[in-house]
């Protein structure tokens, strides 16, 4: 029980930090995201730097963890094991890109925006959650 409490507390802090990073980076601002995606217009390359910053630190963490028997809170490292390029992967990523390009919001920033009380964020998140469920239903049917 005590261990679960630590795990949740740590997850809360990580979620909070993640959100602060998104706000700092400008990712919670759809106009900024669209400025990055608009390579044919006036292009704002900022979000490429967000990716670089995120990837560098995460890469270091993955590298360190390879020498650790388990995580610091004594759980196993949940390495994703899927490697196949499947149709759901391609179709899903395509639909995701379409939605992302239409308004400039992806799941993390949308949750931050909804949390701030912005009606635009709330509408997006409600339909995003419905989308999650629909995808689960479709995948259960397919398999």
């Amino acid at each position: 029980m005590r261990k679960n409490w630590f795990i949740s507390a740590s997850a809360f802090i990580c979620g909070l930090l993640f959100g602060l990073g998104l706000l700092m980076a400008g990712m919670a601002n759809p106009a900024k995201v669209l400025g990055f995606l608009d390579i044919a217009g006036l292009w704002d390359p900022s979000l490429a730097l967000v990716m670089v910053g995120g990837i560098v630190v995460t890469f270091i963490a993955f590298t360190i963890s390879k020498k650790m028997p388990q995580s610091l809170l004594q759980t196993k490292f949940n390495w994703p094991d899927a490697t196949a390029i499947t149709r759901p992967l391609l179709i899903g990523s395509t639909l995701f890109g379409l939605g992302w390009g239409l308004v400039g919001l992806c799941p993390g920033p949308a949750l931050v925006l909804a949390g701030s009380g912005a009606i635009e964020g709330l509408i997006f998140v409600v339909f995003m959650l419905i989308g999650f469920r629909l995808a689960d239903v479709v995948q259960a049917r397919l398999s």
Binding site: I7, S10, A11, I13, C14, G15, L17, F18, L20, G21, L22, L23, M24, A25, G26, M27, L49, V50, M51, V52, G53, G54, I55, V56, V57, T58, I60, A61, F62, I64, S65, M68, Q70, S71, L72, L73, T75, K76, F77, N78
Partner: peptide
């Protein structure tokens, strides 16, 4: 912002796996 996002991601991995 990217570094903070990376730090949050690294923490969730190293602490919680």
């Amino acid at each position: 912002g990217g570094l903070i996002i990376g730090f949050a991601t690294a923490l969730l991995w190293l602490l919680n796996g």
